[in-house]
Design a protein around this nucleic acid. Sequence first.
DNA 1: TATTAGCACTCCTCTTAAATGAGTGCTAAC
DNA 2: GTTAGCACTCATTTAAGAGGAGTGCTAATA
Lengths: 345, 345
Amino acid sequence: MKNYERKLMILQAIIHSYITNPEPVGSRTIQKKYDLGVSPATIRNEMADLEDLGFLIQPHTSAGRIPSDKAFRLYVDRLMELQQIAFAQRRSIRNSLLHDLSEVEKLVENSAKLLSQLTEYTTFAISPKIEQDTLKRIRLIPVDETKTLVVLITSAGIVKDFIIRNEAAIEENQLNLISEFLTDKLANTPIYQMGYIIDHFLMDELEQMRFSARSLLPMINDTLSEINDTKIFANGILNIFNFPEYQDFDRAQSLVKFMQAKGNVADMLMNAGDSQELRISIGRENLYDVLRECTMITATYTLKGQTVGKLALVGPTNMDYSRVIPLIRSVAREVNEILAEYYET
Amino acid sequence: MKNYERKLMILQAIIHSYITNPEPVGSRTIQKKYDLGVSPATIRNEMADLEDLGFLIQPHTSAGRIPSDKAFRLYVDRLMELQQIAFAQRRSIRNSLLHDLSEVEKLVENSAKLLSQLTEYTTFAISPKIEQDTLKRIRLIPVDETKTLVVLITSAGIVKDFIIRNEAAIEENQLNLISEFLTDKLANTPIYQMGYIIDHFLMDELEQMRFSARSLLPMINDTLSEINDTKIFANGILNIFNFPEYQDFDRAQSLVKFMQAKGNVADMLMNAGDSQELRISIGRENLYDVLRECTMITATYTLKGQTVGKLALVGPTNMDYSRVIPLIRSVAREVNEILAEYYET
DNA sequence: TATTAGCACTCCTCTTAAATGAGTGCTAAC
DNA sequence: GTTAGCACTCATTTAAGAGGAGTGCTAATA
């Protein structure tokens, strides 16, 4: 079997046709839409070969053929030509991302939201918990007689605040003293130990300062678990209903259910490796069977050599790779650059 | 036409049947399922009368009949018997709501989330902007050399924070001085004027304190618009796909699109009046035609005589009113009680 | 006078059968 | 090696008919 050139051209034409409109492609269609200088009969012969090689699938005898996962894999690895991202668009991506740099987590979250808007597919973002994060500063600020705002700043620069209620009013000076005391005692303590230390070692002293630390503890613990929780953000889950393969109600719904059970997606993302390069899983290459007709593309965000987040896009296997890949790559690159620029210190 | 008693009983039976399973109800079904002691022929005659009166609709000659909006209106106003909410459930609703009282907005948001879980319908919450809110306290806290956390507390108890970047490190003492200065100058200033005042009156003094207030302004303005933005929270939009009338893909999708365009829902909620009582719009009573087959139930949250939020539930016109209404009523009551208890001051 | 049995009639839905047509695979000729 | 020609396959569309749920009317009954 020689003349691979032509086979590849035909395969590429079929894939292109199927991406443009997701219906089985027949030999005549190829001849008409892509001028390859050969007759449908020849194309048919080549298609039969391509089917034998596992690149094409025939839904039934008298239908055209659709590209297999293997075909898309070849397409992504070899055949496709990536679209250029205009400078203006790159600029605009960057500007969107710069908008809120308050926390790394926010940046990661926003990048996924942006990507979903750009591609009209479903995206996910994940910020892994930072096990070694320590407390940097704790500050109590009066809100009114019975409410105090507690602000925690961690060494990773994460800011969390919550309001606690105190039985009696506490003066501002007193709160400042307590803030200093707590910061002094707890600075550099791993976040996950804070609750324990307050409970076992600082309670008495706090009571002496007339501060009822009891109300502090549960909120601190809530906040900690929030910080430690690997949070996952989903965007555009409803876009699934636009996938051509999911016009069927029940299938779409089962996919939506799967996506909304955040554990699944977190799992997949965690398993996607930490490579700097994009990772692309096509169809049955995916870990989960529900995704057998989806492609998932994953990018990793790195700061000081550490993975600080991941970005994923889920779309139909016949998504327009040449458009989508440059987009996710751009977003990922901008995020990584912003991380290096603003969070290195 | 006398003997309204029996007509009402038959109507009630039809509505009950249609709520239980959303298919046209025939005379025989009524006879079998609800023992009214009359023959199908008699029921048929009554049904013909009820149709003339506008309470029933016949999809086509040989189908049964379905209740009209007018019938559901009558049902809601007169016929239905509300289910009792068990004490335990009320308790559990209250506990869920008590979980996070940090901001009124959060409470409102959580109440909608809870209601969506309880009813498995779509819910919305809205917190109107508080025009007259003034600044109570502003506090700058160092995060690291180039980042400063700004915490704003308003008279309504809303806490917002954001991180700004400063060119050079600023000492903590200095930040405290600036905090005091700003709080002193800006306390009791309406939130929406803050940016203007800093820009026009405080800039020089801040510069003297070696504080580059330039970076503060855009962030403050962002935050303000966030505070002022009437935010709307949607929950369980996907539940629309469970509505029996929306098994049709395109219809469901157009409703989903409508719901996601938050302006629409905000509009409806704002137009729903501020009455303490539930407001129920059935089918074509709704302002928007997309909702012609939905019922929207709205509750209002009040604090010190002022409307501080609204809660809405959207479901199919044939929802189980006797179950849903007590639920939304319970949630609304608990929220109002919590507001009175914890936020009166 | 109110109720009901009986029955013809309507019209949706389900089933079956045939027509259509897109596309293939094979053969034989170029 | 390529291609025209043609028989063949099979999903989809169209048409027709059977089935059935439910009504409305009439006439008989209590």
